[in-house]
Nucleic acid binder design. Structure first.
Lengths: 184, 184
DNA sequence: GGCTACATGTAACAAGTTACATGATTTT
DNA sequence: AAAATCATGTAACTTGTTACATGTAGCC
């Protein structure tokens, strides 16, 4: 996609939290509290190499016997500057694709039960996400305390997720009711 | 992206609402009430050609003097079957990328005012979207009435948007308050 | 014995955006 | 006179996913 990639900033931002290897970055992004971003290994590893080539990160190779080398990346001052420059820029809204809503929108072409099933699956996913979000919020506070700068912002984005999650669970319930009414 | 494309079903679904040309499909998808999906011309036009080649749509060329031909596509029974087969399949959650939240998450690396500006821009966008959503909901009901099958499902997806929009406006207000407290 | 976690990477491929080309008509 | 809307399309390009390759260590 010709849309300019944000992978660089996602990775720089992660490294700015502290030195990490590619695997750790991926693990972080897979947490429920990072619901708003994702990157694949196919993006992360080449980007890390590129960051070092451009002086935005340094690399320390940790050799471990019998296990593959671990590559720990550390952000440089230039890297931090690049990150901060991006942070000052307004965010561009990314186009959305929600398959569940697309199916529901065309729902007149299938049975009510099919539509109900789509909404129920969403509700299940929301409930699981909510539990994970709650758990990770607690872990975050336990580990760093509430006054930590990073925790403060983590709680803001986590709160966004919780807000949307709550609202959507209600929408699911209301929608399921309307669909069940339709059926009878 | 190796992830299987849903463009085919988005286009088929649109054609199922009635015969349309590529331009009209794009216009429909640009409406605020279609916030949950997007396609570019670069996807739509080649897909329409492919649908005809696969017998999922027929094509009628309307010649107009001095203006370029208009190509009106009509879904076939095979196309309708293909759409219905997809509607019966569970929806896969699409990965999300929200640049604004990524910036806020890394917010400790910039000034509070920058973070406030990000949230304020989101709030503006939400307000505009809300107005459009309200307007389009009214137009939909005025044009087809509340009992129409298509309208029923359109109102469900529109309601999803309104629910999230409401919740997010509240989140913006709360977040702005927290950020302003931080500043002092 | 098999599964999961740890750890790095790449190549092939698919998907999707943007910019361009073309040109009439309608609105501002 | 300029800008937007109507209308079709493609080529170049970027982005991003998936599948694969490789191997250890620890757990059930």
């Amino acid at each position: 996609m010709a849309r300019e990639s944000r992978t660089k900033y996602a990775v720089l931002g992660m490294l700015n939290q502290g030195p990490k290897c590619g695997y750790e970055i991926k693990k972080e992004l897979e947490k429920s509290s990072m619901f708003f971003w994702n990157e694949s290994y196919g993006q992360i590893y080449p980007m890390l190499k590129k960051l070092v080539a451009n002086g935005l990160s340094t690399l320390e190779v940790i050799e471990r016997d019998e296990q593959p080398d671990m590559k720990v990346y550390t952000i440089t001052d230039d890297g931090r500057e690049e990150l901060e420059r991006w942070l000052r820029q307004p965010a561009e809204p990314h186009p959305i694709r929600n398959e569940m809503l697309l199916k529901l929108f065309f729902g007149a072409s299938t049975s009510i039960d099919m539509n109900i099933a789509h909404v129920e699956r969403l509700k299940d996913r929301l409930q699981r996400q909510q539990e994970n979000l709650d758990q990770e919020r607690e872990e975050l506070i336990d580990e760093f305390g509430e006054d930590d700068q990073m925790v403060f912002f983590g709680l803001l984005t986590s709160g966004y997720g919780q807000t949307v999650n709550d609202a959507l669970q209600k929408w699911c319930d209301e929608t399921l009711e309307k669909l069940r009414e339709m059926r009878s």
